[in-house]
Design a protein around this nucleic acid. Sequence first.
DNA 1: GGTCACAATAGTGTCAACGATCTGCGCGTG
DNA 2: CACGCGCAGATCGTTGACACTATTGTGACC
Lengths: 221, 221
Amino acid sequence: MTMTLTSDTDAAGPPIPRDVAQQIREAILGGEFAPHQRLIEADLSDRFDAPRAAVRAALLTLSSEGLVERLPNRGARVRAISVDEAVEIVEVRVGLESLCARKAAENVDDEDIVSLRALREDIASAIGGGDLVAYSRLNQDLDRRLRDLSGHATASQLLERLRAQSARHQFRLAFHPGRAAQSAPEHIAIIDAVIARDPDAAEAATRTHLAGIVAVLRSLD
Amino acid sequence: MTMTLTSDTDAAGPPIPRDVAQQIREAILGGEFAPHQRLIEADLSDRFDAPRAAVRAALLTLSSEGLVERLPNRGARVRAISVDEAVEIVEVRVGLESLCARKAAENVDDEDIVSLRALREDIASAIGGGDLVAYSRLNQDLDRRLRDLSGHATASQLLERLRAQSARHQFRLAFHPGRAAQSAPEHIAIIDAVIARDPDAAEAATRTHLAGIVAVLRSLD
DNA sequence: GGTCACAATAGTGTCAACGATCTGCGCGTG
DNA sequence: CACGCGCAGATCGTTGACACTATTGTGACC
């Protein structure tokens, strides 16, 4: 794991010493650190070429974000999100995302609508082509787009945090047989409602969509 | 921790060195630290008789909780929540608390109902007696009670965090003229819905209540 | 052969001192 | 008299060493 580009002593170094927390976050989300894997300060310090105190601070931050858990005197490890928790997270997302969708529908300007139409096409063609990876990525784009359009900083921030926590489950869900075929029209419906500047429809479509996710998650385990 | 019985000669030290973060949190919520007040590590370290590293860790935690903000190289200060932000927070609470109220109505057992009835009486008498401070505290009790009853850890945690952030505004709201007279019946309605084990009514009552809060907040500034 | 005390190891938690960075203020200059 | 410059104080951020706790392995003893 300590692959390292081998001692960045030679010139390389971290060009922009990105925040350690962000690097660890990416490693967790990217699957490099598995659930329950221990995160040893010295190792991380070595790997990211950051002082141990910085690693420590990062772990503290990630801990209160819910991405890692800290066992007293025994260090930190990647937090594993159970299916029950994943369901809870989606239940919370219902409230937050429907709020964002509503606000987004109230806020869109003509320019936004153009780009939403493009996104709609991309989704349709990803589904048509059976490209689940692309579709999964587009879903993420859509979610973020709605968050941005909503202009709701508080909800956005919480959603971003929740998304990180349940990233693993979302990924898994994306490849559930028949899942894409069901969720794609729901996503389209959300986009259409926002394009139509219909807050009620946008909220309703979002609720429907997430209810579907809850159902599938429950059936999974 | 290192403190053994002996070295604590001057008896004054914290008998139980409660988590520094918790102490700072209480100080902020208790109004001892005002918004925008600088929180200097050395001072806190001195005040709470904790090593600076512990204070530092606490500030980091509180920062990602949104209670304090950290300015790079310039330390931390108590974060001020604008009215706009307070509105956003309540908007988010709509989704979360209505979810909790719904779940609470689904979960209550007979014992819970007894204590809810008692709470209902307390609220009624606080209002009858014009005791706004008691009423404000009871509101908080009710909110927490519903969170607990919901059994929804994710929503509860987020709500707790949001409550801390907007504590100052909530407090201010409690003394808004005529506010209690309006909100008390709304609270009673929520309790009644939960007692009646009617999830839909509980959710609706919660939405109504919070919508009222949003309206007042908007009118405030 | 199984179990307990005990020592070795791994890793976190704590600390004091040092270096870096920002702020405010006095001083010189145009 | 206004404005920029630089020094001094305050405070954060970092470092390396050390103390403390949990875990694992080992050997004696039952």
